[in-house]
């Protein structure tokens, strides 16, 4: 399973380098990568490298944060967006544009604190005396999302300039990817990835239910906090670099669960590979179908991932 997905990933990366408004045959791509080929081909391929790397990073981050959130909340609706990550990032980007006139690269640094603040508030409201329960976390996320989206709408409706730039950012795109953006979010992403790998086994305990997990000696509060921290780091890094791409974090855990079942020790590595596959494929599709225009990857992920999810729903066992 894992080997197959890695092969898929390799194909997706090569396609990401070869295809676009100006397609290049695969042998020439490989030649260019190893330093050969003519200067023109090399330039085109090299210009696609940062974007492909960004796709790898963002896809992996989104998929893993989805796996973690669905594990923590035990809710198939679980999505990092549900805990306020995307909306927090969006709200602080809007604030930064409105009051400080930030734009371009600065949005990265605007998105991160907002995402953390939002998740912090969600965890605070969502955790009671007995620790956070899945239902309460989800409700708290709905509360924070509602209030922040009201704020975003109020700002964008009354300040046309803010709306003007916000409507481009909110679609979600890899087109702005360059090495600086990538290096900026890399530390957060790596920290989140490491934490996610460490959380895989404890999440299996949590899946048995809070009481059983506690009986087995697991510290459910610590697991939840660790998982939330990791999911936030991952999703905030992804959102900061590419804008909110909502669907990957929701769809990949469902696909992964259909393939390997409920063991998080398999879900994490498989999500790590399948997330980028989905995102890169979507990005390539967006570049190819409307050539020479581009359709943003945020739009394509929805139209690629959603039908897959609908098919998965049809195949769900009867009685569920």
């Amino acid at each position: 399973m894992l080997v197959g997905s890695v092969l898929l990933l390799g194909a997706a990366v090569l396609a990401g380098l070869a295809l676009g408004s100006n397609p290049i045959p695969l042998p020439e791509v490989i030649a260019a990568l190893s330093g050969g080929g003519d200067a023109y081909t090399r330039t085109v391929v090299e210009s696609r490298i940062p974007r492909t790397l960004q796709g790898l990073l963002v896809g992996a981050c989104l998929a893993l944060s989805g796996v973690l959130v669905q594990g923590i909340t035990r809710n198939p609706l679980g999505d990092p967006g549900l805990l306020g990550v995307n909306i927090g990032a969006s709200a602080s980007v809007v604030t930064a544009t409105a009051f400080f006139g930030l734009g371009g690269h600065a949005t990265i640094w605007a998105a991160l604190p907002g995402a953390f603040l939002a998740v912090g508030v969600v965890s605070l409201i969502g955790s009671g005396r007995g620790g956070a329960t899945p239902v309460r976390l989800v409700l708290a996320g709905a509360v924070v999302s509602a209030v922040l989206s009201a704020y975003i709408q109020a700002m964008t409706l009354s300040l046309p300039d803010v709306f003007g730039s916000y409507r481009y950012w909110v679609v979600g795109s890899l087109a702005g990817g360059d090495t600086d953006t990538l290096l900026g979010v890399l530390p957060f992403a790596v920290a989140g990835l490491v934490l996610a790998v460490l959380m895989a086994a404890p999440l299996n305990a949590l899946a048995l239910g809070d009481t059983t997990a506690a009986t087995l000696g697991a510290n459910t509060t610590a697991i939840r906090i660790g998982g939330m921290l990791s999911a936030t780091l991952l999703c905030a890094a992804a959102t900061a670099s590419a804008g909110p791409i909502a669907f990957i974090g929701l769809a990949v855990p469902h696909i992964v669960r259909a393939l390997v079942g409920n063991d998080h020790r398999w879900q994490v590595p498989l999500g790590l590979v399948l997330g980028p596959v989905l995102l890169l494929t979507a990005d390539v599709l967006g570049r190819v179908i409307a050539r020479p225009q581009e359709i943003m990857v945020g739009v394509v992920t929805a139209f690629v991932g959603a039908p897959a999810l609908l098919l998965a729903v049809r195949r769900m066992r009867a009685g569920t």
């Binding site: 609706l77 739009v299 929805a302 991932g305 999810l309 729903v313 569920t320």
Partner: peptide, 20 residues
């Protein structure tokens, strides 16, 4: 439960289209 998951999928497409 199928209804909700299918709804999420359809919403995702609709929202993406609207934003585009």
């Amino acid at each position: 439960s199928r209804l909700i998951i299918a709804g999420i999928g359809v919403s995702a497409m609709a929202v993406a289209f609207t934003q585009y």
